[in-house]
């Protein structure tokens, strides 16, 4: 994903800086879905995600006259949303950030579960149960790993954009991303490995 301002951003930027309501409504319309999704995964609570979504746009609207356009509007909104979500998490669990730093120095854990579940046909791989498992696995990640995985791999932001949003170095983003990917892979491999054992790969017919 590009950090550059998109053509549509440029067209509406002057209107947005002037706090034009219609331009702002268009911005909310085009960005609220991914931001809500990010918040829901970060907070794992629909009510909290909705509250923070609203706060994000209230803060964004107030700050628009000062928006310099050094990042895309979407990245800027992701930054506000991420900060708001992290503040809410810290308020509930002040120890979260410290734990995070401690764990960053741990040695990488070798993969244990080596089931090759790539062969499971798509219709069997993705169903309601799998979606629940995906969410469960991501909630098992620490908030530091989860946030980086969501911004990089799910929302498709660059390492530089993710680093600037989370306030860590690009190298630290890479380290967290690797850990997050390995942990998710491990948990999903246990899950899909059990499915392979029970069912065996079947055709979708």
């Amino acid at each position: 994903m590009s950090e550059q301002t998109q053509p549509n951003d440029e067209l509406s930027l002057s209107l947005l800086r002037a706090q034009d309501r219609e331009a702002f409504a268009r911005l909310v319309e085009s960005t609220s879905k991914p931001i809500y999704s990010l918040l829901l995964r970060m907070l794992n609570d629909e009510e909290d995600a909705e509250d923070v979504l609203q706060e994000t746009y209230i803060k964004a609207f107030a700050a628009l006259p000062q928006f310099e356009g050094r990042s895309s509007l979407k990245t800027w909104l992701f930054r506000i949303a991420t900060n708001e979500a992290l503040m809410l998490i810290r308020k509930g669990k002040p120890q979260v950030q410290l734990t995070e730093i401690d764990r960053a120095d741990d040695e990488l854990e070798s993969p244990h579960e080596l089931a090759d579940w790539c062969c499971i046909p798509e219709p069997e791989l993705m169903n309601a149960e799998t979606r629940r498992k995906l969410n469960e696995a991501i909630q098992h990640l620490s908030i530091g790993l989860r946030t980086v995985f969501l911004l990089r791999d799910v929302q498709g932001l660059s390492g530089e954009e993710t680093a600037s949003i989370v306030g860590i170095s690009v190298d630290n983003v890479k380290t967290r991303l690797l850990r997050a990917r390995l942990k998710l892979r491990e948990e999903l491999s246990v899950y899909f490995g059990e499915r392979l054992d029970h069912d065996g790969p079947r055709s979708s017919a």
Binding site: S32, K33, P34, Y36, S37, L40, E46, E50, L53, P111, L114, A115, D116, W117, C118, L125, M126, T130, R131, L134, I138, F149, D153, V154, Q155, G156, R181, L182, L184, R185, L188, S189
Partner: peptide
Amino acid sequence: VVVNTIKRTIELYQEDEGEQQLPPEA
């Protein structure tokens, strides 16, 4: 297998993201 299952893991999360909606009431 580790490389392929990591790639598949990422794809599944991206696929799931494509299905996410902002609930109409929200």
